[in-house]
Design a protein around this nucleic acid. Sequence first.
DNA 1: GCCGTTTTCGGCCCGACTGTTTTCAGTCG
Length: 575
Amino acid sequence: MSRANDRVEALLREYAELIAISGQDAFKARAYEKAARAIGGHPVDIAQLDAKGLMDIPHVGRSIADKVLEYLRTGRIPEVEASREAVPAGVRELTRIPGLGPRKALVLHRDLGISSVAELEEALRGEKLRDLKGFGERTEESIRHGILLLRQAGDRILLDAATELAEEIVAELSRIPGCVRCTYAGSLRRMRETIGDLDVLVAADTSEPFMAALTALPATAEVIAHGAKKTSVRTASGVQVDLRVLPPASWGAGLQYFTGSKAHNIRTRELAARHGLKLSEYGLFDAETGENLASETEEDVYARLGLPWIPPALREDRGEIAAALRGELPELVTERDIRGDLHTHTDLTDGLASLEDMAAAAAARGYAYYAVTDHAPDLAMQRMTKEKALAQRDRLRALDRTLRGMRLLHGTELNIGPDGGLDWPDDFLAGFDLCIASVHSHFGQTREAMTSRIIRACENPYVAVLGHPTTRRLGIRPGVDADFDAVFAACARTGTALEVNSHPERLDLCDEDILRAKRHGVKFAVNTDAHATVHLPYLRYGVGTAQRGWLTKEDVVNAWPWGRLHRFLREKRRR
DNA sequence: GCCGTTTTCGGCCCGACTGTTTTCAGTCG
């Protein structure tokens, strides 16, 4: 199962929402939110902690510690369950709609009896909302738009949740006697940014124990189909998991087939057909004789088609087969290639861990360098000042002298204002080792204004990286409207790296934007934007996204040795 | 509900934006 910290975080967040929707003290709701975030980001497994240990976590007091202990003992928190009784699940779902918060959801439920998105749509059609106090025609319109956004997110889940679930299932099935091989395939193996359902493969001579195990998993809520070759279940969180059990001799062909994508498989089968071969999940066969020519490993299958093994992240029919035939597949950047993280936060602003703890966690990952980039004053809620930044720099330099093998960099994440202005004047920016600049507000500007705003920030000689360039958040809001070809060209011209933000909710730039940007000759920085030590491993999702954008370590500045990265940073300041 | 202390209750990251209101409430980051 996932970390107890994550499960408790989800429960406390739900409780906070329920408190807010039922119209109780807003500060109480905030207290639960803060505790949820702190527990989710806490580096120690809370299952190991007693009451005192729990209360040492910031924002966790007696009351919440008791609820956590109750959860660890019984798997339940009675208060949360009681609140669920009082608020229909559909009402909570209403707050998923961007622009619709707990107060409006409460009014909708109390005055119109609305308790699902479907009922809300019905009321919208009848123009019933505009008569409610605090609502109007514009509100109706914004809710309609919000529902549209929610629908676009669909039923897909984020990469981190999918990865955790898949790894749990694979670990479980791998323990069963007779398991020759087990892994996940499908869009998760290709590291798509969101996942519709999970495909798990097992190589074994008998399938029944694996099928039975899947249906018996604690996460399984419903069995959709249960057969000898394939079993499908749905988890409590609504994710469909398909399990296929193959004879060990078909492993490679099966893995190739179930990894997809569909478009890639069509290409490979066409290629097979041109050679008088037939490719299926059981193997690559001679079309005439039916002789099995390759099936045990993916390498065998691709080789018999005259191709090198193609990394899953490239299997999207974006020219990878033609490139493979020419022997020009890119040597993709890997997680091991990344020498440092250039975008991270501490508890000086909105991070959860101290400078010392973040640096220690980074050093434990074997990084050669690591930048701390807390927010700057224009994000007013963070209350940053020059004095605080300078004090942090002193602490960081002192800490740096005690570290062996990892260089600490003092950076900042600047806010790109509506006109492209930044938080601090150039002479102060010059004191940082590196500056990231990102858009955090005013998302609704015109395309022209947004484009020139971002470009102006990139033209600042001290801005080394454009952070989460489109500012999208998956399932929450789309990216801003800007002429990104113009932005990418400006980045190439000014020597500004584009971030590939690894947070599973962002993955920004996305694969297709990376491909576009690369054609402009831009460099990239794959960063985590970590706000807690447990976020540093998000890097794998950013690297997966970079791979889907065909990036090599040549393209990624934080895959370079420090000397080269340092020259890159210096070069920009000299332009 | 948590926190800090001015040790026992008052404040809780702050500001912008939007829409509905006519001085404010809700939402967002």
